[in-house]
C-alpha cells in the first residue's frame, strides 16, 4: 500500500533575522501509512512545525524527498499541486482563521480548491453549499455559531471552526499543530478524542504535534520524538523509556522547574497509571 507521507533524508534550514542559519530539519526519514494516528513530540525548536509545513506542502525541502500519497510535489505544479494539497487538512496552533468573516465563510474556505474564483467571490455575498458547512459545524458542535462573526467566538469555539474548515475538505490526511496548547488543560483529552472520532470512520491519517508528553503517551499508538531536527525515536508508547524522554528534552529551557528527569518521570508515571 502507498504511504500517506514519505520523507527521505529531508533537510530544511532558515535564515535567521540576526544573520546566520538555523537548521530546522537535518536528515529526516519517515514513512507514515494511511490511517495512522501519530503524535510528534520534542522540545520547542526541534522542528515539529517545520515538519508539519513540509507535510502540508507549504514549505519545500532544501534537499531530500517529500511524497504525499505517492506523489512528488516538486514534480507537479498548478492544478495538480492544489489538488494534492486539498487532500491534507491542517489545524494551526493560532487557528489562522479570518476573524472578520462569518463562521460559515471560514468553514467554506476549506472548499476553495474545488471552486472557481467567481464562485468564491459569489459565495462571499451569498454563501454557497451551506448544507455541507452546517454539517461540518454540527460535527464539531458549533452549529449554533454558523452565522456569527468568527472574532466574536471564544478561543475554543474558534478552534472548532478551524477543525470544521479542515473537515469540509474531506481530506485523506489531517495535521494538527499543538492543538491542545490553546484549550483548557482539562479539555485536552477530550480534544484528542474528538480528533480521533472525526477521523476514525474513513480512516484518515492523523499527525499531531504535541508538547504534552502524557497526553501523547495516553492516546497515540505511534510517537515520533524530534530533537534538534532529527528523529530521536519512533516508537509505540509502551517502548518509550524514561531515559529516552530525558534525552529528547535534553537542554530544553522550557521545562518549568527542577531536573528534566523529575518532570518527565512524574509525567510518565501519571500517564501510565492513569
Amino acid at each position: 500500500m502507498e504511504s500517506a507521507f514519505e520523507l527521505t533524508d529531508v533537510h530544511k534550514r532558515f535564515r535567521l533575522a540576526t544573520g546566520g542559519w538555523k537548521d530546522a530539519l537535518q536528515g529526516v526519514t519517515l514513512s507514515i501509512r494511511p490511517g495512522e494516528f501519530i503524535a510528534i513530540i520534542g522540545p520547542s525548536g526541534a522542528g515539529k512545525t517545520t515538519l508539519l509545513r513540509l507535510l502540508n506542502l507549504t514549505l519545500r525541502p532544501d534537499s531530500g524527498d517529500v511524497r504525499v500519497s505517492g506523489l512528488n510535489p516538486a514534480k507537479i505544479g498548478g492544478k495538480a499541486l492544489r489538488a494534492l494539497r486539498s487532500r491534507t487538512g491542517t489545524i494551526y496552533q493560532q487557528h489562522n482563521l479570518i476573524p472578520s468573516l462569518r463562521v460559515v465563510h471560514n468553514i467554506l474556505a476549506g472548499r476553495l480548491s474545488s471552486w472557481s474564483i467567481m464562485k468564491a467571490l459569489y459565495s462571499l455575498i451569498s454563501p454557497r453549499e451551506t448544507t455541507s458547512a452546517a454539517e461540518a459545524a454540527r460535527k464539531v458542535g458549533i452549529l449554533d455559531k454558523l452565522w456569527e462573526r468568527t472574532d466574536r467566538l471564544s478561543g475554543g469555539e474558534q478552534q472548532r471552526v478551524a477543525i470544521a474548515r479542515a473537515l469540509i475538505q474531506n481530506p485523506s490526511h489531517l495535521l494538527a499543530d499543538e492543538p491542545i496548547a490553546s484549550v483548557d488543560p482539562s479539555r485536552a483529552d477530550a480534544l484528542i478524542q474528538l480528533l480521533r472520532e472525526l477521523t476514525a470512520e474513513d480512516q484518515k491519517t492523523v499527525v499531531v504535534n504535541l508538547h504534552d508528553v502524557p497526553v501523547a503517551l495516553r492516546h497515540f499508538p505511534r510517537i515520533i520524538g524530534l530533537h534538534a531536527g532529527e528523529v530521536f525515536f519512533d516508537l509505540p508508547p509502551e517502548e518509550i523509556t524514561e531515559n529516552a524522554l530525558v534525552g529528547l528534552y535534553e537542554g530544553d529551557e522550557e521545562i518549568p522547574e527542577g531536573d528534566a528527569r523529575d518532570w518527565i518521570g512524574e509525567a510518565t508515571k501519571e500517564s501510565l497509571s492513569g
Partner: peptide, 15 residues
C-alpha cells in the same frame, strides 16, 4: 492556510 488547503493565489487573496 488557504493555500495549504488547495486554494489558488487569487482565492487566497480574496478570502
Amino acid at each position: 492556510a488557504l493555500r495549504a488547503a488547495g486554494a489558488s493565489r487569487p482565492q487566497a487573496i480574496v478570502y
